[in-house]
Design a protein around this nucleic acid. Structure first.
Length: 854
RNA sequence: GCGGGCGUGGCGAAAUCGGUAUACGCAGCGGACUUAAAAUCCGUUCUCUUUGGAGUUGGGGGUUCGAGUCCCCCCGCCCGCACCA
């Protein structure tokens, strides 16, 4: 019995595809285009199972679309800038560039082993000057159009390492590396004006109908549009005014206090000669920013002693500094209406403030009173003078009119979305191409002087940004006055790199950032595939960046990604020994029902299946799997066990099942004493019943698998092919290869090879060749199905009595209702069930079901 | 707290429009081949049962001739966001 030799077969076909340049494409207006893209990887050094799943799915779509006659662009590149390279430089004394390019070479080899249909001639790495040069030009385009600007902004500063930390690098208020307490520092930083597009980014979500609803909703919440009003209040005994933001200006008559954020400038000012207040503000700032701390924090405040004038009534309310008011949202100050907001109500109860009910449910009358629970929904205004009797929406617009007339407030739309800070005080990123001159201020680096290259000779042992401490790199003449000036030593956030790579793939070697003919042909990406973890930032930034560079004429699409699919994670059981130490899967083995340690024999605790991660050691190395089972097995398993959007549980037995199946398919060619008709033999005129039956299953499978792949139901597609091969095995068992049987069997094997080709391309190509084809399967068209063959003459119809199944009848398709009815009533089981009862009605759904109602 | 999703055999999962629930696989059990094992192949597996059937898609109710699928209530799990005024 022969065994499929993947070690020989897989590299053989990979080389053939390469030699024939099967996957290299160019713009061809005679063919419909299709752009498939998977989120490009960070070159960590080794691929993981998540990559295998991601790229396998993309490959299925790419190979399928190619076979359906599309000109398919399917590129690959490297998200190659970022912090890990600098950490490696510090820890292992290896230059970030060397580390990165070594990792890329390694991962490219691993990806190639998977047999992906990638146009490698378009490969790019964001750390390559040929890429980041253009990014610098795009930055300057944004700068010219006021979409890039500089302002001061707070950062997490690690005083030991002299470096800025990202939020996730701050652990319990301390730097993740140094352990030093993190300080807040005000630094001048570059921002992209994403807020300029807030409304457009929100509105356009509606048109992204091939995106998951979940992702659209997450982006919608992130943008966080709210309609409200700015209101400014007089302060007793002070000349300045207090400006607040509210979404409920209609509840102004329920106001019983105002509150400032602890970081509000007025709070800071007042704290100078109020030690209680200063202590409270310190307290608030010291309170952890962890979710838990915030959630558990009680609503607290300190009365400033200042009184705020009500705009319409002759009364004043106290002004507090309160821990639940955020400086970053609105104006950093609020007015409190305890009856309309639960936080305000809790606060009022704590400090004995009035609770004036100003909105009642439409069904209640004016005796309605808020006590322990606020009333924040729609209703009718009360206790509110000129607003009494109005509904909430009308009251809002009328009160805003009053404020606007009095010039004490105005209606406004606010967004939670904030501008995108892109400055990073690091070495391994795209240098920001501007020059600072003490006389002339900020100037862009002149186009002729681009790119601003990263220096190679950098020190990683000294604290701080290597570009900043480099002895000469930042020294440059001011392009305006020629005096000694200084380069910006910040580099860009790596999210900038990934905000346009999909467009660069259209013309990766062009000497302009984007070749208009190429991007006009290929964009948008028809199918983008990646993890849900990028649902907000990467996807939103890319949508913004597309709009921003469209304004500069670099491309002309509204949205970068027409279709988006978010795949589930790859999970594995977790193992711990008695000491609580995590163990790798290869360190444990089954012993009866229990698990034990391979070496020590100690019992092992099996934990729940979780997303594969190095820290929990529940990882399986793709390369090891490919070495022992081949790429096709890994690919097939990835696709067959779970729906692609759901998490996949990696199991050894599942992989072995996939491996068994691949061998089974491979052996289907070998039937004792049978020589199949040669390739392209015309169909015989007559088929036996069993041969016709097999052909029907073949064509049903072609139809079903095509539909499944279009709809991302890869697991169902695999199941369908397995059903077909089961039918073939049964047919071969019967041995009826006469009367067209041999031809039908050959047709079936060809169908299996072609239907599996997007999933197991090497196996399919091998079968295809062994079937006597000279043309590569990778260059061949997808099979057509014959509707006429699929329709069965006879159908099995279920017969129910009062909705309960009593039997089935085999009838001719499209038989008259009366005939179907009498056939159903003739069944013994039906007769028994209706014995002694009256038939009230018989429902006949043609070709499907008959229900007798008694 | 708000928003979203999910719940089907021992396990991963199918079930297109409301029309034969459990396809396909994993694991198990029995068998064939073998000196033996591996590999492979065949059979079998929702539960109860008086062998007539009866029950079963987290639980309860409803709509319908008919509900895994639609509606209401409840339970459980997962994900996202969050003092957003």
């Amino acid at each position: 019995m022969s065994r499929y030799n993947f070690r020989e077969t897989e590299p053989k076909w990979q080389k053939r595809w390469d030699d024939a340049q099967c996957f290299e494409v160019s713009e061809d207006t005679d063919q419909p285009k299709y752009y498939v893209l998977e989120m490009f990887p960070y070159p960590s050094g080794r691929i993981h199972m998540g990559h295998v799943r991601n790229y396998t799915m993309g490959d299925v779509v790419a190979r399928y679309k190619m076979a359906r006659g599309f000109n398919v662009l399917h590129p690959m590149g490297w998200d190659a800038f970022g912090l890990p390279a600098e950490n490696a430089a510090m820890e292992r004394k290896i230059h970030p560039a060397e580390w990165t390019y070594d990792n890329i070479a390694n991962m490219r080899d691993q990806l190639r082993m998977l047999g992906l249909s990638i146009d490698w001639s378009r490969e790019l790495a964001t750390c390559h000057p040929g890429y980041y040069e253009h990014q610098q030009r795009l930055f300057l385009d944004l700068y010219e159009r006021d979409l890039a600007y500089r302002r001061e902004s707070w950062v997490n500063w690690d005083p030991a390492d002299n470096t800025v930390l990202a939020n996730e690098q701050v652990i319990d208020g301390k730097g993740w590396r140094s352990g030093a307490p993190v300080e807040k520092r005000l630094l001048s930083q570059w921002f992209f004006k994403i807020t300029e597009y807030a409304e457009d980014l929100l509105q356009a979500l509606e048109g992204l109908d091939r995106w998951p609803d979940r992702v659209r909703l997450m982006q919608q919440n992130w943008i966080g549009r709210s309609e409200g009003a700015f209101i400014s209040f007089d302060l007793d005994g002070r000349d300045d005014r207090l400006e607040v933001y509210t979404t409920r200006p209609d509840t102004i008559f329920g106001m019983s206090f105002c509150a400032l954020s602890p970081n509000h400038p007025l709070a800071t000012e007042l704290a100078e000669d109020n030690s209680d207040l200063a202590a409270f503000i310190d307290d608030c700032n010291r309170m952890g920013t962890s979710e838990e701390a915030i959630e558990k924090a009680e609503k607290k405040g300190v009365d400033t002693g200042i009184r705020v004038r009500h705009p319409f009534e002759d009364r004043t309310v106290p002004l507090y500094v309160a821990n639940f008011v955020l400086m970053e949202y609105g104006t950093g100050a609020i007015f409190g209406c305890p009856s309309g907001d639960q936080r305000d109500l809790d606060f009022a109860h704590k400090y004995g403030l009035d609770v004036i009910t100003v909105v009642r449910p439409a069904s209640a009358d004016d005796s309605f009173q808020v006590t322990d629970e606020c009333y924040a929904t729609d209703g009718v205004l009360m206790n509110s003078e000129f607003l009494n009797g109005l509904d909430v929406d009308t009251a809002k617009s009328q009160v805003i009119e009053r404020f606007e007339a009095a010039e004490t407030g105005r209606g406004t739309v606010q967004y939670r979305l904030r501008d995108w800070g892109i400055s990073r005080q690091r070495y391994w990123g795209c240098p920001i191409p501007v020059i600072h001159c003490s006389a002339c201020g900020v100037s862009p680096v002149p186009a002729a002087d681009l790119p601003v290259l990263l220096p190679d000779d950098v020190e990683f042992d000294a604290p701080g940004n290597p570009l900043d401490v480099h002895p000469t790199w930042s020294q440059v003449a001011c392009p305006k006055c020629g005096a000694d000036a200084r380069r910006d030593t910040d580099t860009m956030d790596t999210f900038v790199d990934s905000s346009w790579y999909f467009a660069r793939f259209c013309s990766p070697r062009s000497d302009v950032a984007l070749d208009r003919d190429a991007v006009d042909y290929w964009l948008p990406v028809d199918q983008y595939i990646g993890g849900i973890e990028h649902a907000i930032l990467h996807l939103l930034y890319s949508r913004f960046f597309t709009r921003a560079i469209r304004g500069a004429g670099h491309l002309d699409v509204d949205e970068p990604f027409a279709g988006l699919f978010t795949q589930g994670m790859v999970c594995h059981e977790t193992y711990k020994d008695d000491a609580g130490k995590w163990l790798y899967p290869e360190e444990v083995k089954a012993d009866g029902d229990a698990m034990i340690h391979v070496e020590t024999g100690q019992p092992i605790k099996v934990g729940r299946s979780e997303s594969m991660s190095k820290s929990k050691r529940n990882v399986v190395d793709p390369e090891a799997i490919i070495e022992s089972y081949g790429a096709d097995t890994a690919r097939l398993f990835m696709l067959s066990d779970s729906p692609p959007e759901r998490d996949l549980e990696w199991t050894d037995s599942g992989v072995e099942g996939a491996w068994r199946y691949i061998n089974r398919v491979y052996r289907m060619l070998e039937i004792d004493g049978l020589t199949l008709p040669s390739a392209n033999t015309p169909a015989p005129g007559q088929f036996s019943d069993s041969a016709l039956d097999l052909r029907r299953q073949v064509h049903k499978a072609i139809q079903g698998v095509s539909d499944d792949i279009e709809r991302f139901r890869f697991n169902r597609a695999v199941a369908r092919v397995r059903e077909l091969t089961n039918a073939m095995a049964e047919f071969a068992e019967g041995g009826d290869f006469s009367s067209g049987g041999d031809w039908a069997y050959r047709e079936a094997i060809e169908a299996v090879a072609r239907l599996l080709s997007p999933m197991t391309p090497h196996l399919s190509e091998e079968l295809w060749a062994r079937l006597g084809h000279n043309m590569l399967l990778a260059d061949s068209a997808w099979p057509e199905w014959d509707e006429a063959l699929i329709v069965e003459d006879a159908v099995t119809i279920a017969v129910q009595v009062n909705g309960k199944l009593r039997g089935t009848v085999d009838l001719a398709r499209g038989i008259a209702q009366e005939e179907a009815e009498s056939a159903a009533l003739a069944l013994d089981a039906v007769a028994r069930a209706i014995e002694g009862k009256d038939i009230r009605k018989v429902i006949v759904v043609p070709n499907r079901i008959i229900n007798v109602v008694v």
